[in-house]
Design a protein around this nucleic acid. Structure first.
Lengths: 176, 176
DNA sequence: CATTCTGTTCAAATTATTTTGAACAAAAAA
DNA sequence: TTTTTTGTTCAAAATAATTTGAACAGAATG
């Protein structure tokens, strides 16, 4: 097999042809989706590539296919593995690590969603606690009307926050 | 009442004192929350300010309180009004428009969430349609295995997408 | 009606985020 | 063992998003 130098200045074992139309389109779409969900585009693109790959892909081949830098891919796969979107895999006759997409997108998304919500719930609780405390500390320096107004409105926020916290388990259950 | 020049180089009717601790803290928290939800910080800060304001606030006073520029506030309130987080209000003896926070945060959030999901569902449907079409167009140029692989995996995505679409109404119902 | 204030828009400046690529260490290949 | 390839990290470059401020037009005020 003829080896060839790639853009990344690396020799690729399997002279990876450029991506065909559908694959390119999914890479694009996955990049957009990632962006909407608050991840870097490149992370989505890597997942898009792996999702339609017939075999696990090595990091250098990912670089090549997406014309992305080593650094980007290194960080990207790390995130994807951490999030559970990608698994590492060993490939016959090759001791390097390869990557493959976890195909159960729905399940992974749900799990990520659940984690995100949990984290945010905790943060929200802390912030609310902080606000109520600040109010207490400041009580003496506020006019009585002002104090009551702030107290009421903060309680309104706390109510919403508790409501969401209570409903989330139900929702994630529904998603299963 | 002594008028005074503000940072914004405007004369403020009501010599607005600097924000007290709790208010400042909510401005900060609301800014962070906005950022998490994908809005500019400044938009959240404006809402935070209005949420604890005893009376409707004019745009120049918002500028002043947040030391933000006119342009920022102009765009910010526009977004907030569009999203339903803020209402315009007339104030006694003053024909300028003032702004007040809609206090039902939960309801507004839910509505925004619902809209976002709806939009995204539509976009997702279109993209999936596009992908399936591209696949058809390309069918003849793909190996049969390759074709089948791509078809199957795209169908997997479509399934997830349809599942989410079907569940969303349930979830938003739950949130009411 | 003249003057001051307010609100909008948008190009330019600022700020935040992402990507690159160089330096390095460690693994594979020769 | 020597050479090549791979993978990580992180400062710097590139890009994306937000904010500012100037220019303008339309209200309010006296």
């Amino acid at each position: 097999m003829a080896k060839q130098k790639t853009q990344n200045n690396q020799v690729s074992q399997q002279a990876s042809e450029p991506l065909d139309g559908v694959r390119l389109e999914l890479v694009e779409v996955a990049g957009q989706a990632a962006h909407v969900l608050g991840f870097p585009r490149s992370v989505g693109e890597i997942y898009g590539l792996l999702y339609l790959a017939p075999n696990p892909v090595s990091a250098p081949d990912i670089c090549d296919a997406l014309s992305a830098s080593k650094g980007s891919v290194s960080q990207g796969v790390r995130q994807l593995v951490a999030l559970g979107f990608v698994n590492t895999a060993r490939v016959h006759g090759n001791r390097r690590i390869h990557y493959e997409a976890v195909l159960e997108v729905g399940a992974v998304l749900r799990q990520g969603y659940e984690q995100t919500i949990q984290k945010r719930t905790i943060v929200a609780e802390e912030k609310m606690k902080g606000l109520h405390q600040s109010l207490m500390v400041q009580k003496s320096q506020l006019g009585p009307d002002d104090y009551l107004l702030i107290k009421d409105r903060l309680q309104g926020l706390t109510k919403v926050q508790k409501r969401i916290k209570k409903l989330m388990p139900l929702i994630t259950a529904l998603l299963k």
